[in-house]
Design a protein around this nucleic acid. Structure first.
Lengths: 233, 233
DNA sequence: GTTGAGAATTAGTTTAGCCTAACACCCTGT
DNA sequence: ACAGGGTGTTAGGCTAAACTAATTCTCAAC
């Protein structure tokens, strides 16, 4: 592996740099800047540590840092972040479908493995799974070339009453909450119809395909990303 | 709270501690002490770094350090080392048989993954493979309980003169050394015979199947893990 | 019984990545 | 237009794990 001199080989990012880049990616997915304190909260470290790292990363060209404003990924940083996200989501898919892991537990395992696997291993796993496009939580998997589908999803909390939707993605990584949602039958791919919502940020009531109903509190409803379906479906 | 005070929880070994323990295990598999400079050579670090780590590890009870003599694993250290070796060999087996990895290069991949996988994942893999007892190189896999069959691989530096062996594993991931060894024809699977060894930690001289010879310095010989073959082979 | 080569250790430095405490900046409310 | 609160950054310190240079130990040869 030492043709490193001709092709500008990525100088092997450290584990924590990889984590910072992933955080910035997630925090800027809606556009705008990622703030120091949001990154700190997401990584569970102190804000000054983030400031220091931001300085280093902007010197190495992975992020653009506007002091007192926040940061964004450069194209190079975005490429690295997407690679980590591909690794993470392929790992989650593989662990779930080939090694019987529960969808609530895979996140933690993938979080450690994503820093240790080679690209070769990830591609072998992706191949064994038939190049999956979505992970077990319904999140899109970036391609090896670094392209990711732009989801236009709406949280269940925002769907109008009466609208049929497909639950596309569950935006959470806490095992307990995921376990609960799975018990309720609220997993990616499920079709449901919003039949009521109570006022003052109250729960949303949905009907599943089997005509049973579920009451979903706002906190959870905000994590259920849906694609609306035409009425007649 | 603070049940941690009564039951001495394994305080999560660092990656490099895990590597040190593995080295000591391999270097003492024939009995006796592992020396500072052999550990340093095997891990490709400077001897003073080893001295420092030996001090720390003996304070935490993982090794027994006799200054100026060498080190041995305590029962606790041996347990940790065997756990790493189980991880390593299960990973090698799984990558080879389930993901089409080549016999010769699973080692490098496993070397990184062994520090990141959970016990749960290893047991799932072992289960999927039907609890294998030997890895793809023929080395015995310790049980989850930490028992290992006494038929360990031996480094080329320890093989007696005259003994024919099969080179099973190259215990290194430094590209320069691997490249050199490959140029010399010293890759996993090769059969060779030890025809001489020079004194004072001098080089080992081996004959290959094509009757050419190679002179292997001690530093490299410590990385070449061999299985002895009966004389008549 | 001394001595010197080679191995091991101590001493001091470096880098990455985190921390807390103190200070600087920005912006909104009055 | 400026005062304060909250967010961001700077300053300084700590630990793990590596390094080099200097020192100490061991043991075998004379």
């Amino acid at each position: 592996m030492n043709a490193a001199l001709r092709s500008p080989e990525p100088p092997a990012l450290t584990r924590s740099v990889e984590d910072y880049l992933k955080s910035v990616f997630h925090l800027t997915s809606q556009g705008g800047f990622a703030t120091t304190s949001d990154i700190a909260a997401m990584l569970a470290i102190a804000p000054p540590s983030v400031s220091g790292m931001m300085k280093r990363l902007s010197e190495t060209g992975l992020i653009e840092h506007v002091p007192y404003r926040g940061v964004q990924l450069t194209p190079q940083g975005r490429r690295a972040a997407l690679q980590m996200i591909r690794r993470h989501r392929i790992l989650e898919s593989y662990l779930t479908s080939r090694l019987g892991f529960d969808w609530g537990d895979v996140h933690v395992e993938a979080e450690r493995l994503e820093h240790a696997v080679s690209d070769k291993l990830i591609e072998r796993m992706a191949d064994a799974l038939g190049e999956p496009r979505y992970d077990p939580h319904g999140a899109p998997i970036p391609t090896a070339a670094g392209e990711i589908e732009e989801a236009e999803l709406v949280t269940l909390a925002e769907i109008e009453v009466g609208r049929p939707v497909t639950l596309q993605e569950v935006g959470d990584e806490h095992p307990e909450r995921l376990k609960y949602l799975a018990e309720q039958g609220l997993t990616p791919g499920v079709r449901l119809t919003v039949i009521d919502r109570q006022p003052f940020n109250g729960p949303t009531i949905v009907r599943l395909a089997d005509d049973t109903t579920r009451v979903v509190g706002r906190e959870l409803a905000l994590l259920l990303f849906c694609r609306p379906r035409p009425d007649g479906a």
